[in-house]
Nucleic acid binder design. Sequence first.
DNA 1: CGGCATCCATTTTGATACTG
DNA 2: CAGTATCAAAATGGATGCCG
Lengths: 227, 227
Amino acid sequence: MDQRTYDQYCATARTLDLVGERWTLLLIRELLTGPKRFSDLQASLRGLGTGLLSARLKHLEHEGLAHKVTLPPPARTPAYALTEAGKELGPAVLALARWGLKWAMGERRATETFHAGWAVLGLRACFDADAATGLRAVYEFRIGDESFHARIDDGTIETLHGPAQHPDATITMADETFLGLTAQHQTLAQAIETGAAFASGDAEALHRLRGLFRLPAPGSRTDGSPA
Amino acid sequence: MDQRTYDQYCATARTLDLVGERWTLLLIRELLTGPKRFSDLQASLRGLGTGLLSARLKHLEHEGLAHKVTLPPPARTPAYALTEAGKELGPAVLALARWGLKWAMGERRATETFHAGWAVLGLRACFDADAATGLRAVYEFRIGDESFHARIDDGTIETLHGPAQHPDATITMADETFLGLTAQHQTLAQAIETGAAFASGDAEALHRLRGLFRLPAPGSRTDGSPA
DNA sequence: CGGCATCCATTTTGATACTG
DNA sequence: CAGTATCAAAATGGATGCCG
């Protein structure tokens, strides 16, 4: 919030003063998987006009959460990237995502937009650090027409937009198949078995992939009983 | 958001549809330390009018995140409490708080309101689970005219408004002293030594208290370099 | 493509007055 | 207390049009 501060000496309130306005956390979600151009951001965020997007980006720049960069050749086009402070909002965004996976997902509504990148960030939200001890591998995901990769190194994970340089394994599937995984209609292993998804690369890496991500058991928000 | 949904099939966006409106996450922050009455909530949230507070509470009820309760005798007055789904927003709120402690706190501004309860939630944000292995203790904090207690049980912590039933240790200090701890002017141990804070109770519990909370090293948001 | 400026209809909010 | 009713101010969204 700009003018409209909560005016509380409280860490949560101060954070929400900076990133609590409409669209801001979703903008950060977009940038968490790597730098994005103005038009890419607008394309991902239906309903956000150029004026408001411009204002939000300026705000993030002014507050030191993002900065303008020039993409390396051959792109050479302006883009926005998170600063260190901005990147560190990752855990907060992922915590909101984890809650949503458990309590708010259900079926996709007819009007809802979907981008594979959101789901890949969801992978990061479901990442089980314990299951990745001793593992060092790069997985490339090709979902619909987007590609993402996850770099896993002994309990840490990094997910970035775009193809990987030297993936140990590559997993390919359609948007719909990926949606089915989120909705827990089937597991990745099942999708591969039925031919809905294709996996190739290092056998050991593919084998360990099975246990790396753990979706929370969905809870029902309609009553207050423990899940 | 009510009418104004992001309309994205994304866990983060769906969560923000539910709790991303102005005041909502702060309302949840208040309820994370126990049930609160309508007027208490309003008193904690300067600037939130009765109309909007009423609307927000109705929304939380409708979405199954909070419910109306009747406080046990002798109070017997209506109050609002979080459901299981609401309580599970705790990690997300604490993640925002942790970020704020590191990147957004600095000095208290003249106009900012402050309540000890926020700081005690901050304690929970700083809780170091590893440092609490094998510890089982209840600490009562009396800060200014408010009291809170933290129940620690082997790596888990629960912080609630109000005095504890059987505290193992009690720590008393003024608001200003507590503010000094947050601003890292001094540590709790130093405050006790200088007489600004008073501690009593089980010696072992008091000794272990020292290592339980770990404030993040403040970062500077004005540039993008690592802290 | 990458933005900023402007205009306008609609929502959201903030503040206050008022009722059981 | 615990809210409801009301109204003015601000934020949003959508549609442009403009410029490098």
